[in-house]
Design a protein around this nucleic acid. Structure first.
Length: 492
RNA sequence: GGCCCCGUAGCUCAAUGGCAGAGCGCCGGGCUUUUAACCCGGGCGUUUUGGGUUCGAGUCCCAACGGGGCCA
């Protein structure tokens, strides 16, 4: 804290002491308000139309004060909006003295008649005026807001105090999650909760966070996906399950990556990835309608129409069309890397074939997928948990859904052959040894044991909830759709 | 991981290598229908941190820390 900050603090602490001196409780335990700012305004407007008078008790945080000597105006805000308090020395008597020890950021309550001032502002003409909570530090500048991104993320409460549009984004985020639940619940899916702390960090190609369990004397990991536990439930006969949960990936932080994010996964027995496509192209517009009241969105000047059907685009064809490279001509990673470098792509020779193809998709295909699109049939080595195509085992029955140039969903016909599953997981381990540092999946023996008991044909789905919210709210950074994104800690 | 940009008062921002400033906020005074209220007075600062160059550094150089962007 700077010296100046201390002076501000001291000034407010002095006021706090003065209030206590006069017998004012600066933190009273409760206050009954009759109206929110918004409902008080509505009540007045109704009374005004009917030629009646109305009273209200409101409460909120002081955001602006205009003192005029014997009269003062205070704008207070609550979660619904703002309302002006009109305070007069004559009407309040001793209560008016409170004003001298108030600051921006304090919470106050007022009761009185609702009125309209000469300038037309609907106000509470206070008969009673109470301090509800003294703030020792000031809110950010009300007019300019809080623009410093670091402070906005690090001290989100300050951001929320002055940047009201953040409330709107977060309300929409909540509405997205409510809508997702409603969609799956209505289709007979059961919402379940699976472990966050797991012995094997499998189910996705990602680096895990590790932690120590003292009593068990073993390393546990924060889950990187919910997939393998949900499929254990399919083995157990829960035919339709879903989970909305936080997963953790020990990776870099950028505009669309936060180390923890919200993932929705669903699994449906007797469905395949084509059935899941049909579900997804209905799910997304459903959620959009409920969360933002529309099934089209504007982004980068483009109008994105979320309504079905969404085009299916073959991955190999899409890569060939946009990059000129036919991945089938390069079954070997080194040769593919050479061809990519020829095409001007930054490709190291020590990268796995799956990673190289991912790079091709990311560079040549993804940015073009502005309208919702299913990219279909991924190479087998990129999809160790997916069932291979019967007609071409180089590819898996897998799709990813894109919109606004962003991946929003990943799905496959689940691999339910335990013998092949072990081999495919072992292939991942082998690739990890060969391409050190790459994020690849792991063998989960306990999961394979479950598969050995038999899993019906199943269609699975994963949706990045944060990215879906980004898409629907027009936000460019995952940090703007998460209340408390990861920030570096500052040593005090 | 590499490259680029940024960090000045509580907040938003200025300052050619030459006395660190403004608006809001804050402090003191005035004002009984204001609303970015207004009027009078007050600048409240380790210019992120640590080195270096220079007669002189907010400004130039190096490093660290924090933030943002582009690439991997």
């Amino acid at each position: 804290m700077t010296q100046r900050g201390d002076e501000l603090l001291q000034s407010r602490q002095a006021k706090l002491a003065a209030l206590r001196e006069r017998g004012v409780d600066p933190y009273p335990p409760r206050f009954r308000r009759s109206h929110t700012a918004k409902s008080a305004v509505a009540r007045f407007e109704k009374a005004e139309r009917e030629g009646k008078t109305a009273r209200a008790t409101v409460a909120g945080r002081i955001m602006r004060m205009r003192g005029m000597g014997g009269a003062s105006f205070i704008d207070v805000e609550d979660s619904t909006g703002a309302i002006q308090l009109y305070l007069q020395a004559d009407a309040l008597g001793a209560g008016y003295e409170l004003l001298a020890d108030l600051d921006l950021g304090d919470f106050v309550g007022a009761r009185g008649e609702l009125m309209r001032t000469r300038r037309g502002e609907i106000s509470v003409q206070a008969r009673r005026f109470t301090l509800l909570a003294k703030a020792l530090r000031p809110p950010p500048d009300d007019y300019y807001g809080l623009r410093d991104t670091e402070q906005r993320y690090r001290r989100r409460y300050l951001d929320l105090i002055v940047n009201r549009d953040v409330h709107d984004v977060m309300r929409k985020r909540s509405a997205v999650i409510v809508a997702l639940r409603r969609f799956f619940d209505a289709r007979g899916f059961l919402e379940v909760e699976t472990p966050t702390l797991v012995p094997v960090p499998a189910g996705a190609m990602a680096e895990p966070f590790a932690t120590e369990h003292h009593a068990l004397r073993r390393t546990l990991y924060l889950r990187i996906a919910t997939e393998l536990y949900l499929k254990r439930l399919i083995v157990g006969g829960m035919d339709k399950v879903y989970e909305i949960g936080r997963v953790f990936r020990n990776e870099g932080i950028d505009r669309d990556h936060n180390p923890e994010f919200t993932l929705l996964e669903s699994y449906e027995a007797y469905a395949d990835y084509r059935a899941v496509m049909r579900m997804v192209e209905r799910l997304v517009p459903y959620v959009a309608q409920r969360a933002i009241g529309a099934t089209t969105i504007e982004r980068d000047g483009a109008r994105i129409d979320l309504r079905p059907p969404w085009p299916r685009l073959d991955l190999r064809e899409a890569v060939r069309t946009h990059s000129g490279i036919d991945i089938d001509d390069f079954p070997d990673a080194t040769a593919l890397a050479a061809r990519m470098r020829e095409a001007g792509v930054h490709a190291a020779y020590e990268e796995s074939r799956g990673r190289l193809i991912d790079k091709l998709v990311g560079q040549f295909v993804e940015p073009r997928l502005i309208q919702p699109t299913f990219l279909v049939d991924y190479p087998a080595e990129m999809s160790p948990l997916a069932k291979l195509r019967a007609d071409d085992p180089r590819y898996a029955e897998r799709f990813e859904a894109f919109a606004g140039g962003m991946e929003i969903a990943n799905s496959f016909t689940e691999l339910n052959d335990p013998v092949q599953q072990r081999a495919r997981m072992e292939e991942q381990e082998e690739l990890r040894r060969r391409y050190q540092g790459e994020e690849l999946d792991r063998v989960d023996d306990d999961y394979i044991l479950a598969l050995e008991h038999g899993m019906p044909p199943t269609g699975g789905l994963g949706i990045g909830v944060d990215r879906l919210v980004m898409l629907l709210t027009g936000q460019r950074s995952i940090r703007d759709v998460a209340l408390f994104p990861q920030v570096r800690s500052i040593d005090e």
